[in-house]
Design a protein around this nucleic acid. Structure first.
Lengths: 127, 127
DNA sequence: TTAATATATTGCAAAATGCAAGTAACTATA
DNA sequence: TATAGTTACTTGCATTTTGCAATATATTAA
């Protein structure tokens, strides 16, 4: 694996030293920010994430959850053992994507009339 | 081609009626927003766009310019005939992506120390 | 005549995506 | 006890997108 991001100097970045480029290397695709959106709305579990109206494929969801955890944007916590079941949470790095989502949502609402945000999900009771 | 976006009602959107989803359908990939960035920085021509440090392939650049024009985010104007040569410009819809770029750049700078913005390109003299 | 410039297109291999089905470890129901 | 359901994935495979290199076209410059 190319782990250049941990190095110093001019070879420290995958594509370039541009902050936009490095952001796109994390969430520059059609699915990742939708998962972040769902977590912001209060979704926590795999079935909740997979049941969003965009119909993400389960292999893509599993892949993105893995990559987001590796990037430090989300964490997962087991809420039961046997079988192990996990809930996913945004880290501070993930929460700080709020302004990015807000700007994109604002642009979408302005240029695609009829679009509308989904309501937040009710939070489950403590287990 | 699926041209649902011109229809009305509940089938009006490709993936969902979420404004974020519709924004991602336009620029949710690793290259499109880098082209927008370059246009914001003052680049206008194919060779200027292709010479950015991320090294976009020429077929990808041609594809994205076509899609962005179809989406109303950029326009092109011939600056000479024989052979036809074009300059690319952001439309208002494209200019209004400024806050999206700003939020992503801010996030990148915060979480990837060492990244830095490129300087704006000097504008060429009027032909 | 040859080379250089600008804006692409083409061909092909590699990687990512989309879709359906399968798996594992339980839990609930008949 | 047997069957079905739930949750969180994994696997296989076809389609699509991307990455890379080479080629094309029209023109000007040397």
């Amino acid at each position: 694996m190319n782990d250049d991001k941990t190095m110093e100097g001019e070879f420290a970045f995958e594509r370039s030293c541009c902050p936009l480029t490095n952001a796109l290397d994390i969430f520059g695709d059609k699915w990742t920010l939708l998962i972040i959106r769902d977590l912001v709305l209060g979704k926590r579990r795999y079935l909740e994430l997979i049941s969003s109206p965009e119909k993400i494929a389960s292999n893509i969801l599993a892949d993105r959850l893995k990559k987001l955890e590796a990037a430090g944007v989300i964490t997962r916590q087991a809420y039961q053992q046997k079988p192990a079941r996990y809930e996913y949470f945004l880290t501070e790095k993930g929460e700080s994507l709020g302004p990015v989502l807000a700007a994109m949502i604002s642009w979408g609402q302005e240029h695609y009339p009829g679009t509308q945000l989904f309501p937040a999900v009710r939070q489950r009771q403590a287990t």
